[in-house]
Design a protein around this nucleic acid. Structure first.
Length: 580
RNA sequence: GGGCUCGUGGCUUAGCCAGGAUAUAGCGCCGGGCUUCUAACCCGGAUGCCGGGGGUUCGAAUCCCCUCGGGCCCGCCA
């Protein structure tokens, strides 16, 4: 059996090879510095187009030891000792730079490791429970494209952290005590819900209509306030009305999320923290610190010593709680059941989230890590559910699917309707997710239909296509009777093969950095580069028409590519198709 | 007015936190490649005072200061 053989082969081999390669370079270099009599400082390791790992450490020592960087570099190189079986093949100097290259052993073991670990390749050994909160859109209408940015960033980060080894719980926090839900409830009492529409869209209609009416007819405002008051007091009939409204909206929201391969493990109502008394308790705790003071009737916390000029109001003058107070209680609750908390929030929450963190630190509660993303606006300005000015996620998904359908129909006219529909759905979802995640969260963006529906760019379909190609080769191989079996990885020496293996090997490092820095765009960029490397291999290195021993080895490399492409796509929440 | 953030070829964008080798990639543009494992592909080319100005440094897209432009926020909304 191939698998058994691989197991024996890889016994005692490190699980994380790229990380080991990096460590090896680091220690080899560190030893060389020491024996050369240089003080070991920052190794200055980095990526480079000239090497697999490069070091510019010579610059840092130059002035201190009164030698040119180049001289220092040569001295270091002469002191470098590479042991047999090392993942380092050799080290070269290029002027003041030290360039390290990966060894054949590194390449071979990666190929074998991928074949052995399969979907678990790139899974890291981190431990600990993380509660990641994302989306948390108010239940007053469908998700719009701004919410989707939150959802996609949150879900991708959750997938990255999961692959990095953490136990990740995804939570959706429902703000059920704010005015918007009360407006929806009031609207449902006064207007008819269109039950033929998707429930979240129907709720939005009622919400928009209610808001319009409440502006025009101010006399209804107390009715909304009354709903809020009775809900906060725990009136059972009112609770039923609120639950009904929220369930309807959330039902539709969940449907959209599921369509995008996004799920939550837990939906948490903010009202539970008021009813449980946790909100009152946390207010008392803050009062005990002596930092809270009544000003204009409201209870405020001074945060100047935390670098925040704006004091935070934690209780209204009428004694009721605010969103922030309830959020404090929510975080206290979360902190008690995990090692880390991560919140994905829009840029409008920058100040409030730093205030939240400051208050939590004052009362000795673990602080959340906050990932802020900038706004998605429309060419005509910012979106607003209340005013009905937004582009819904469903609308975008439908349009993109339609555009994808036209592409499939054009490219694969011989396929049946079911195939075209299936492909256009996963291509559409993938395109939307990829387009969002490839851009760093801190960039503000303007939604553009033309750009959203453009399939010519090198995005998700490009990566999915590379995966489908790999599957196709494997399928054709099976039909020809060529199966995966024993092979000699040493013969994979073509330029494109070596480049592809190195790219495959980098996956675990990408996950490691993305998880550490909370950068969801990294796997997206990596997946595109991997697809690129695979396509070049595909173009220049024949697999099935090669000599028999090459067929075996290259087929194994195709399988490796398929596995890692699938893992990368899975990390992005994008379908890895066998055919498209 | 104050705070945060972004500004990189026509457009979108990586690199910035931890300063170093010709500044990343895509779209678009120009040119080439389907009798060959799916051409949603591959190869080549043109296009950049890294918003502007100063400073630190042997070296700045990256660090510091100033300035201009976009976005977001600024005590009882969420």
């Amino acid at each position: 059996m191939l698998k058994k053989k691989l197991c024996t082969w890889l016994e005692c081999k490190p699980l994380l090879m790229f990380l080991k390669f990096k460590d090896e370079v680091s220690s080899v270099l560190s030893n060389a510095l020491e024996s050369a009599g240089f003080e070991t400082c920052d190794m200055a390791l980095g990526e480079s187009p000239h090497a697999d790992i490069a070091s510019s450490v010579a610059f840092r020592l130059a002035s201190r030891y009164k030698k040119s960087p180049k001289e220092i570099c040569d001295i270091i190189r002469d002191k470098i000792k590479i042991v047999p079986d090392s993942y380092i093949e050799r080290v070269e100097t290029a002027g003041p730079y030290l360039n390290f290259f990966a060894s054949r052993a590194f390449l071979n073991e990666n190929v074998l490791r991928i074949l052995l670990d399969r979907e678990n390749f790139g899974r890291l050994g981190n431990k600990g429970k993380i509660i990641l909160e994302h989306t948390s859109a108010n239940p007053d209408g469908p998700l719009h494209i701004g919410h989707v940015r939150n959802s996609v960033i949150g879900d991708t980060l959750a997938r990255i952290l999961d692959r990095a080894g953490f136990d990740v719980e995804r939570q959706y926090y429902i703000n059920d005590m704010g005015r918007q839900v009360a407006v929806v409830v009031w609207g449902l009492e006064n207007f008819k819900l269109d039950t033929t529409k998707k429930p979240d869209h129907a709720i939005a209609e009622v919400y928009i209509e209610a808001n319009k009416t409440l502006v025009d007819e101010k006399e209804h405002s107390p009715e909304v306030n009354n709903f809020m008051k009775k809900y906060e007091e725990g009136d059972t009939d009112t609770i039923t009305l609120f639950r009904n409204a929220m369930d309807t909206a959330i039902l539709g929201i969940k449907e959209t999320l599921i369509r995008m391969n996004i799920h939550h493990d837990n939906f948490i109502l903010e009202s539970r923290f008021v009813r449980s008394g946790d909100v009152d308790k946390i207010v008392e705790r803050i009062k005990e610190t002596g930092r809270a003071a009544i000003k204009d009737g409201a209870l405020m916390v001074d945060l100047k010593d935390k670098g925040i000029q704006k004091a935070l109001v934690i209780q209204r003058s009428d004694g009721t709680s605010l969103y922030t107070t309830r959020d404090l209680a929510y975080h206290e609750w979360k902190a008690g059941q995990c090692d880390r908390m991560i919140d994905i929030l829009g840029a409008d929450h920058k100040l409030i989230s730093s205030q939240l963190k400051a208050v939590l630190s004052i009362i000795g509660i673990k602080e959340p890590e906050i990932v802020i993303f900038e706004f998605v606006s429309l060419p005509e300005g910012s979106m607003s559910t209340r005013r009905g000015v937004f582009i819904s996620a469903d609308e975008v998904l439908d349009q993109v699917r339609q555009a994808a359908y036209e592409e499939v129909a054009k490219r694969r006219p011989e396929t049946d309707e079911e195939f075209k529909k299936k492909v256009s759905e996963f291509v559409g979802i993938g395109a939307v997710r990829y387009d969002i995640i490839r851009v760093s969260p801190e960039k503000s963006t303007t939604f553009d239909w033309k750009q959203a529906l453009d399939f010519e760019k090198q995005g998700a379909p490009f990566i999915q296509y590379a995966h489908a190609r790999a599957c196709s080769i494997i399928k054709n191989a099976e039909e020809k009777g060529a199966v995966l079996g024993e092979f000699d990885p040493n013969i994979l020496v073509e330029e494109q093969e070596v480049a592809l293996i190195k790219k495959l090997a980098a996956f675990e490092n990408v996950i490691d950095i993305a998880a550490h820095d909370l950068k969801p765009a990294l796997p997206a960029i990596y997946a595109r580069e991997l697809a690129d490397a695979f396509n070049q291999f595909y173009r220049f290195v024949p697999v099935l028409s090669a000599e028999p021993e090459y067929v075996k080895a290259r087929l194994a490399l195709v399988e490796c590519s398929r596995i890692v492409l699938a893992n990368a796509l899975d990390t992005l929440g994008i379908t890895a198709p066998e055919s498209m």
